[in-house]
C-alpha cells in the first residue's frame, strides 16, 4: 500500500469518539495477512504479547517476523506454526535463563522449519532506525569475522557490508534498512487518535515501530488527548502514523510494563517447563491462547492474587502521578 493511502485511512478512522479503537481481534484480522512481514515490539519488557496471542488465535501463517530480541514471544509464534522467517538477535527465556524450546526444535529438528537471520541487537536497532528514517543504510557495530556476518540467510547481501569511509578511508560496517509491513506494539498509554506514549526505558521501540508501514498499538490505558498534550515528550509515535489502537491492559504480561506491573517470572518459568515438549507447549496454548477470547479473559484467568503481586511496585496507572 502506498504511504499516502495508509495515512489517509488512518486519518479517516480518527473521526468519531471511538477514533481508531478496535478490538485486538479486529485489528489483527484487518492488518495482518498471511505472509506479512510483522514487527513485534518490546525488548524483554513491554512485549506485545496480547497482539501476538491474537495472531496465534487467528492462525496467521508464513509470517516474516522482525524482532530485536526473540524471547518467549517469538518462541510461542514459532511453536504455533505462524513463522516462516525470523530476523532477530537472540531467542530464549531470560528467566533462569532457560532455552526457548520451540525455537530449538525449529532449528535443531526443523520442526517446523524456520529460516533465521541473525544480527547483533545494536545492528537490528540500527537497521530499523534506517528503515524509520528512510536512509539507505546505517553504520553499525563491527561484525566482520563473526557468525552473524558470515552466515547469511534470506537477507543475503542485503544485511551487512563493509565499506570505506568517504571521509577517513577507514573500514565501516553498514547495515541495510529494515521496513516491516506491520508493527504490533504495546505501549503504556495512547489516545483514540493513536498518539502513543511510553514511560521508562524504550529498548528500540521508537525506531522499530516507526520503521513499519502500518502500526497497531495496544495500550494499558486509553487516555484523553489533553493528557498526552501535557506530557508530549513521552510520545514515541505521532497519532497519524497509527492505524489502530487496542485497549489491552496487562497486554505485555508476562513481561513487565514499567510503572504498571513487574515481570511475572513464575509464569515465564512455568512456560519453559511446559514448552520442553510439543504436548506441553500445545497444552500451554490451549490454556492461555486458544482457551481465552481476549486479554480481558486472560487477565481474569491469571487471578487477582497473582495480579496483586505484580502491581506492588506500580506507580502510574490511571493517569496518577504520570510525569508532566
Amino acid at each position: 500500500m502506498p504511504l499516502g493511502s495508509c495515512i489517509f485511512i488512518a486519518e479517516q478512522m480518527t473521526r468519531g469518539p471511538r477514533g481508531k479503537l478496535l478490538s485486538g481481534r479486529e485489528a489483527v484480522g484487518r492488518f495482518v495477512q498471511d505472509g506479512s512481514t510483522v514487527y513485534f515490539g518490546g525488548f524483554g519488557f513491554l512485549q506485545a504479547f496480547s497482539l501476538a496471542h491474537e495472531v496465534i488465535r487467528q492462525r496467521k501463517r508464513e509470517l516474516t517476523v522482525v524482532r530485536e530480541a526473540g524471547d518467549i514471544l517469538v518462541d510461542q509464534l514459532i511453536g504455533a506454526g505462524c513463522v516462516r522467517r525470523l530476523v532477530t538477535s537472540h531467542v530464549w527465556n531470560p528467566i533462569g535463563p532457560s532455552s526457548a524450546y520451540c525455537f530449538r526444535r525449529a532449528v535443531e529438528e526443523r520442526d517446523p522449519p524456520v529460516e533465521v537471520e541473525e544480527m547483533g541487537y545494536g545492528s537490528i536497532s540500527m537497521a530499523l532506525m534506517a528503515g524509520a528514517m528512510d536512509l539507505p543504510f546505517m553504520p553499525t557495530t563491527e561484525h566482520a569475522g563473526t557468525g552473524q556476518f558470515q552466515h547469511r540467510s534470506f537477507l543475503g547481501e542485503r544485511k551487512f557490508q563493509v565499506i570505506e569511509s568517504p571521509f577517513s578511508g577507514e573500514k565501516v560496517t553498514v547495515v541495510a534498512p529494515l521496513k516491516p509491513e506491520v508493527g504490533l506494539i504495546h505501549v503504556q498509554r495512547a489516545d483514540v487518535e493513536g498518539n502513543c506514549q511510553v514511560v521508562g526505558p524504550l529498548g528500540n521501540l521508537r525506531f522499530g515501530a516507526n520503521a513499519c508501514r502500518t502500526i497497531v498499538a495496544s495500550a494499558e490505558e486509553i487516555v484523553d488527548k489533553g493528557l498526552i498534550q501535557l506530557s508530549s515528550n513521552l510520545t514515541i509515535i505521532p497519532g497519524f502514523r497509527v492505524s489502530a489502537v487496542v485497549h489491552d491492559s496487562l497486554g505485555a504480561h508476562p513481561s513487565e510494563s514499567f510503572g504498571y506491573y513487574d515481570r511475572d517470572i513464575q509464569f515465564a518459568y512455568d512456560y519453559s517447563q511446559r514448552a520442553r515438549t510439543r504436548d506441553g507447549f500445545q497444552a500451554f496454548l490451549d490454556e492461555w491462547v486458544f482457551g481465552v477470547n481476549d486479554r480481558e479473559e486472560y487477565t481474569r484467568r491469571l487471578g487477582e492474587d497473582r495480579l496483586k503481586k505484580l502491581v506492588e511496585i506500580y506507580r502510574y496507572q490511571h493517569g496518577r502521578d504520570w510525569p508532566e
Binding site: 537472540h90 530464549w92 526457548a100 547483533g120
Partner: peptide, 28 residues
C-alpha cells in the same frame, strides 16, 4: 565468545540463545 550454537551452525546439536547485545559489547 560463542553463545549461539553447539556444533555446526546450520545443523546444531544444541541451539543456544544468540547474541542479544553481546556482539555490541564485545565490539565497542
Amino acid at each position: 565468545i560463542n553463545s549461539s550454537c553447539l556444533g555446526d551452525y546450520k545443523k546444531p546439536k544444541v541451539r543456544l540463545a544468540g547474541s542479544g547485545g553481546a556482539a555490541d559489547l564485545a565490539a565497542n
